[in-house]
Amino acid sequence: MSTRIQQLFSKKKGKILSIYFTAGYPTLNDTLTIIQNLADAGVDLIEIGFPFSDPLADGPVIQQSSQKAIENGMTLKLLFEQLKNIRQQTNIPIILMGYLNPVLQFGIQNFVEKCVVVGIDGVIIPDLPVDYYEAHFKNLFKNNKLANILLITPETNSDRVQMIDALSDGFIYMVSSNSITGSENNLAHQSDYFDRINQLNLTNPTLIGFGIHDKHTFESACKNSSGAIIGSAFVKHLATYGTSRKTIFDFVKVFK
């Protein structure tokens, strides 16, 4: 399927570091700078959030970055324009993450095609339900070799996890706890959940996200999966320290 994601997981068996940022934040044209600095700093996977006015699964940090990004003028159209030469710049796997409504207004066909043209490897659309994806979008994604990354949570029962595994390509996004993004929960309380998932021997690897914000939480995530996704903590860091090579390197080296 999406070779860059698969190559990553086949060559690196653990401690995969995935970083999320919101496109258009802190300023409209930071996208390429942030990608380059993250790639150079040794991040394994990048998730670019395209902003939505009403991000239901997100906490205050990503809500605010999204709102600012929209005010700055970020749109899907502009994001694809910014990313049009990204594959001449870096070979790091890139995933787009955002909500369904902007995708529908852009047009699902158009969205998938643009992803393929610029070299996006996968997408995460939290409010696109699994059954709707399977019934309406799956063939389009498969035909275009675009990975749709699906989420599981502590409340997802094992049958459903296996169904999601069968539909997934690339990896499964394992939400660390019952929470929106940016909630700094203690991962130690989730060992039963992580053990349950790991005992299912899923086809796809998992990355743990939501609440991963420091070395400690990153390492406990890595003990239970192939790696972790950091979002709010990085967005907060950009808000405070900016997007320079040094500040991004400073953020990333904590997790290396």
Partner: peptide
């Protein structure tokens, strides 16, 4: 209509 919800709300 439908139910366009994140997986967190599925159960």
């Amino acid at each position: 209509g439908g139910a366009f919800i994140p997986e967190m709300l599925y159960p």
